[in-house]
Amino acid sequence: MAKIKITWVIALVVFWEIIARTGLVNELLLPTPSSVIIYLINGLIYKDLLLQLIQSIGLVVLGLSISVIVGIVITYLDYFYPVFQGLFEVFASIFHPLPGIAMLPVVVLWVGVGVDAVLLIIIHAVIWSFYLNLKMGFHQIDRSLIEAAHNNGASDIQLFRYVLMPESLPSIATGLKIGWSRGWRGLISAEMIFGAISALGGIGWFMYERRAFGDVKGTYAGIVLVAIVGILVEQVLFNQQGKYIFSKGNHQDNE
């Protein structure tokens, strides 16, 4: 399957190159992919693009980490205290379907337009899906394991640490994967709407600025870069890691 997919990618790029080169389409609408790639490489080596990319990825990683820590805490409270369960379920059903961009006007009023605001958008994008996934993981665990722990006198913390968390690793991996893709989308949109959130601005700002200057190749280069990062992280990092965690989980199950 992987081979077919790669063949398709190459075929599409070649098709794009041919269409762009025939001159049938205005160059300002569709630059050739080769010129976009050259622009991208130049931008990464000679301009600030690499730093902007690192800033963006760093922000998502930071937002993701905060969300995971807070997410684990609230799922713990949710699992052991019905009061909190009710509260967080209400929060999740209100905020989970709400796109981060819809929160933007309020976020700007609360924390202004700096890095904090973008971070808040990312956390909002990640935390609810992570919480829901983890919660689902907890509830899918075989009851007998939990009862065995109870019978052996395990405290809540011990149950959480030695049964709930390890048995939910596949759900955590799924939560992280969904969280990453939601966070990455939220970040790019926020950067494109806010403008430069720091002196450097991230990859979203790069695209916005290139568009404002009518630099079509630059705009395409930004889109290609966002796509490449998305593919690399989702397909390579999470798929491999997901498989690893999943097999580890099964392995423990068999013991």
Partner: peptide, 8 residues
Amino acid sequence: FDKQLISM
């Protein structure tokens, strides 16, 4: 001022 700009 370019580093201080924000687009709105």
